[in-house]
Design a protein around this nucleic acid. Structure first.
Length: 945
RNA sequence: GCCGGGGUGGCGGAAUUGGUAGACGCGAUGGACUCAAAAUCCAUUGAUCGCAAGGUCAUGAGAGUUCGAUUCUCUCCCCCGGCACCA
């Protein structure tokens, strides 16, 4: 009788062994290939580790152990993002210093993490609140300052009038009240420090292409940065020397600009109103509107977004530089002062917001872009180029006058229209067929030349030099089984319905770049709808019939505009009127001018002689020690900066420190950075898709520019762990009392069971509910592994090679749920044959090691098995010569057949017809068609009765 | 509203260069062992019709292409995440 699987004893034993031996220390000198596997370092909160942490950390641990077994030199460290608001808020409540609560929390976290058997290199542990760490956070501030990337300016901040303190955005509830005091938050202008992240906006967008990150995270970052390209165009004012600049992404619509709008904050407006004799006739009304708009919070602006408001500036007109028309100017708060130039040209026909405004104020709408429809290319097929193809799907007509409103196009993989051409003297049909064969790889198809499609001769003449063809036409292409020139009558009939609709509208065809461009004749357009897409210009003077993209450039140039980029991204405000953070290393001379603190005085220590009571300024302002220190070093009358840095500054560079955590001279040596960075795999929650990940990328780009590192992206591969929900599918929260405490689960079922369970729940990135019953399933699996008998020699067949291949691939892709499932299948096979053959068992334990390391090590020791290397497999043993092929008759599986892989079509079909099941079903109708897809399926089609 | 990701048994989830849907696990039902219970083991377990053999239906809904669709195309519904007057 095997002894009972006592997880507590075994897990403690191995954790002690690993700790004592420093088993997971990364080797700075090894020649083995390095791999840097990193978790987002946690904020050590007082409530301890939660199951979400466990999920991410287990995933990186499994991956690290797997890679070590494959011979990599793995750096897998852990540290603490220890500065932050919760500890300070707790101090305000209790008076206990944040350093104390934070260190207690770190001790809890560390012991919880150790109890999970996670293979961190503890010799590299760091804490962002330790002076030997924040010394370098301050050093980074100085680096940015020296390079003009840190500056001070006035900014609006969230001000809590009850607590007399500035709040971070996340401390302001959606209804505009303070989370702590419940007071209505005010906007207050204060001098603040900023990092000039906007200098790197382009690199932050462009370099996303280089990294292996979830697509959604990249998109979030792109949206946040919000780069858009457009034109800066100047609109002169009538009877004035003043001009208004607008930014627009759609200079092609300028002929439709029937009015202008300036933001209430626009400086020109303030100036115009301040003059004793303002040109604005209704100045009072305008002032009133501006005052009202100022009082609106962002929230109110949002809520009122649907209803547009504004006031016309009477007596002032702008001149549209494209057509020299006089147009009115409005002030309206739907235009933001902080974006672009704070002024727009309004094109109500082609912009939803301008359209809504024009409707309310009854302003003229002029349509200047006619929609066209450019079809995207097909999904790529292996070894074949993509070919653009379009088909009419539907036509929307106005029932009153039977006018065509819209033509809907769609792509169809089996049938397509191609626009083909031929050179002088060449046969058109042959030329098209040759081209289609080359471009698509299709060998068998029929073509039909489509009459009724009107080629516009003047359009063609205009674009002649862009096209190498002398003649062009539209063909319908139908894929066929044989090579034919014509469609059968039957086939033609089949498609005739669509065609009838198609040929009724006059169409214009022509190539733009590589895409066919198709648009309905201009006079068939519906008037008055807001069309925001690209198209063909109409009512635009000499630019009419020009395509949007082309017109953008041409018009911008013609009106003297400048092509430029704008961004939504703002500089990073890093000042916090808070105690528990890294002090900003700046002092002010008696005149109040800021001076960076010289490096030799770093770390610029956080003082401890403060009270944690909200008093209206940063708690550092009360510190006698800090003031005395400043005066002692810099002289009488000098004052310290009393704000601290946003904690995101600390976490923007910590991944460098792990490479060289004890260095007192540099944040890390160039050699060690070169040795370990960039991070190969980074795992953390999806809540950091924008802020942390973007700030960290910004720091790395600065380091690259300054020559400290030779790469521009710190995290090559990023994965997010999904949220773990409570058993009822709701979010876990303390207030609901449905939080699962990992300690209890580890105590009860063991660390290996918890690890295995969290990985078995589903895909790493998925949001999934906790289910304590399901832990019993993986625990039972481990119990059975524990009880498994091992036999000296083989007692049956177990397909280990296939399992090794499957699990190796799953590990690489971090599909741990299916890897565990594959191990369960192997165990089931062992049990079916009564015991595990020794050779298979050895590999089974090796495969199990990264996932459930404690039990695997214990069993390996018991049986004398070396589990330090990952097993390999023999690929020839995985694929067998025979395959089981299902047989479908009229699409339903009726039988299956075991045949050799090399069996030919005729032979396979003959063998299939011999089967009684097949005979029975084939007897019901006349056989029409038989297909054998080698190794996959046999399919019969019979005449349906 | 826009962008992105999803929707498969009672539950968590497998399977997509189109090829036997539901792997693996949980739960459930029946049985063995036991005085009994727990643990363990064996069997069954998508729905439905049928005594059975065997059918039929089924991957959010509806259509389409195909010998064959969870997988491709179109329309619609729902859920989750992000952004939201960004010109």
């Amino acid at each position: 009788m095997a002894p009972v699987y006592d997880h507590k004893k075994i897990e403690k034993k191995w954790q002690d062994i690993w700790l004592a031996s420093g088993a997971f220390a990364a080797d700075d000198t090894s020649n083995k290939q390095k791999l840097y596997v990193l978790d987002m370092f946690p904020y050590p909160s007082g409530s301890g580790l939660h199951v979400g942490h466990v999920e991410g950390y287990t995933a990186t641990d499994i991956y690290s152990r797997f890679k070590r077994m494959q011979g990599f030199n793995v750096l897998h460290p852990m540290g603490w993002d220890a500065f932050g608001l919760p500890a300070e808020n707790y101090a305000i409540k209790t008076g206990i210093p944040p350093a104390k609560t934070t260190n207690d929390a770190i001790n809890t976290f560390r012991s919880q993490i150790k109890a999970l058997g996670l293979s961190y290199d503890w010799s590299r542990e760091i804490g962002a609140h330790n002076p030997d760490y924040y010394k370098w956070t301050q050093w980074f501030f100085l680096l940015l300052y020296k390079n003009g990337l840190a500056y001070k300016k006035k900014a609006l901040v969230n001000w809590d009038p009850v607590d007399q303190t500035v709040l971070a955005n996340e401390q302001v509830l959606p209804d505009g009240t303070a989370e702590r005091s419940g007071a209505k938050v005010e906007q207050k202008e204060l001098e603040q420090w900023f990092f000039k992240i906007t200098d790197y906006a382009d690199a932050l967008v462009d370099d996303l292409d280089q990294v292996d990150w979830p697509e959604s995270t990249k998109i979030n970052q792109r949206n946040w940065i919000g780069r858009s390209e457009g034109a800066l165009i100047t609109f002169p004012l009538k009877n004035s020397v003043s001009k208004l600049d607008v930014f627009t992404t759609r200079p092609d619509t300028i002929f439709g600009a029937t009015y202008m709008v300036v933001a209430p904050e626009h400086p020109w407006l303030a100036e115009a109103l301040s003059k004793t004799k303002s040109a604005i006739e209704n100045a009072d009304e305008v002032r009133k509107y501006i005052e009202k708009a100022k009082q609106k919070t962002d929230l109110e602006r949002q809520e009122e977004a649907k209803e547009k408001t504004g006031v016309e500036l009477k007596g002032v007109k702008a001149i549209n530089p494209a057509n020299h028309e006089e147009i009115p100017i409005f002030v309206a708060d739907y235009v933001l002062g902080s974006y672009g130039t704070g002024a727009i040209m309004a094109v109500p026909a082609h912009d939803e917001r301008d359209g809504a405004f024009a409707k309310k104020f009854n302003l003229p709408v002029r349509q200047v872009v006619a929609p066209h429809f450019v079809d995207a290319s097909n999904p790529p097929r292996p070894d074949k180029k993509n070919v653009p193809r379009v088909v009419v799907q539907g036509i929307v007509r106005n029932p009153k006058d039977n006018m065509v409103l819209q033509v809907i196009w769609k792509q169809q993989p089996w049938k397509t229209f191609v626009i083909g051409g031929a050179e002088e003297g060449e046969d058109l049909v042959e030329a098209v067929k040759r081209e289609v064969r080359e471009e698509t790889g299709y060998k068998n198809f029929a073509t039909v030349e489509r009459v009724g499609v009107e080629m516009r001769s003047e359009w063609f003449a205009n674009h002649k030099d862009e096209n190498r063809f002398a003649r062009m036409h539209v063909f319908e292409l139908v894929l066929a089984n044989e090579d034919r020139d014509e469609l059968s009558t039957q086939e033609q009939e089949k498609h005739s319905l669509e065609w009838v609709a198609f040929k009724d509208i006059p169409m214009v065809f022509g190539p733009v770049g590589e895409m066919p461009l198709i648009w309905p004749a201009l006079n068939d357009l519906k008037r008055g709808t807001i069309y925001t897409g690209d198209g063909i210009l109409i009512n635009s003077g000499k630019y009419s019939e020009t395509e949007s993209q082309e017109a953008k450039k041409k018009i911008t140039e013609a009106v003297g505009g400048k092509w430029m980029k704008t961004y939504r991204l703002r500089d990073w405000l890093i000042s916090r009127q808070r105690y528990w953070g890294a002090p900003i290393p700046v002092v002010y001379d008696p005149e109040g001018a800021p001076h960076p603190i010289p490096e030799e005085h770093l770390p610029w220590l956080l003082p401890t002689d403060v009270e944690f009571k909200p008093k209206g300024t940063s708690p550092l302002g009360q510190s006698k020690e800090l003031l005395e220190r400043t005066e002692k070093i810099f002289g009488k009358g000098w004052r310290p900066e009393i704000d601290t840095m946003d904690t995101f500054v600390c976490s923007s560079w910590y991944y460098y420190r792990f490479a060289d955590p004890k260095n007192e001279k540099e944040f890390a040596t160039k050699e060690k950075i070169k040795k370990w960075l960039p991070v190969d795999l980074y795992v953390g929650g999806a809540e950091h898709t924008v802020l942390h990940l973007m700030y960290a990328r910004f720091f790395t780009k600065v380091l690259q520019k300054m020559g400290y590192v030779n790469f521009g992206e710190p995290f090559l591969k990023l994965r997010h762990q999904g949220t773990i929900l409570a058993e009822d599918g709701s979010k876990m929260s303390k207030s609901k009392g449905n939080v699962i405490n990992p300690d209890e689960i580890v105590e009860r079922y063991g660390a290996d069971s918890v690890r295995l369970y969290e990985m078995f729940m589903g895909p790493l990135e998925a949001m999934k509910p906790w289910n304590t019953k399901n832990i019993m399933g993986v625990r039972r699996f481990l119990d059975r592994v524990w009880r498994l008998e091992v036999s000296a020699s083989g007692g049956g067949e177990v397909a280990m090679d296939a399992a090794i291949q499957k699990i190796t691939e799953d590990m690489e892709k971090m599909k741990f749920n299916t890897a565990i499932s594959a191990l369960m299948i192997v165990l089931n096979q062992f049990e079916d044959i009564g015991s595990a053959p020794r050779a298979s068992y050895e590999n089974f334990l090796r495969l199990l090691t990264p996932l459930a390391p404690h039990i695997a090590h214990e069993l390996a020791e018991k049986h004398g098995i070396d589990i330090s290397t990952w097993p390999s497999y023999d690929a020839t043993k995985i694929t067998s010569a025979d395959v089981t092929v299902p047989i479908q008759i009229n699409g339903k599986v009726r039988a299956s057949l075991i045949i050799s892989k090399n069996t030919g079509q005729t032979e396979a079909l003959t063998a299939a017809r011999e089967l009684p099941e097949v005979k029975k079903w084939l007897a019901l109708g006349k056989e029409m068609k038989a297909v054998y897809v080698p190794g996959k399926v046999i399919s019969f089609q019979t005449e349906q009765v």
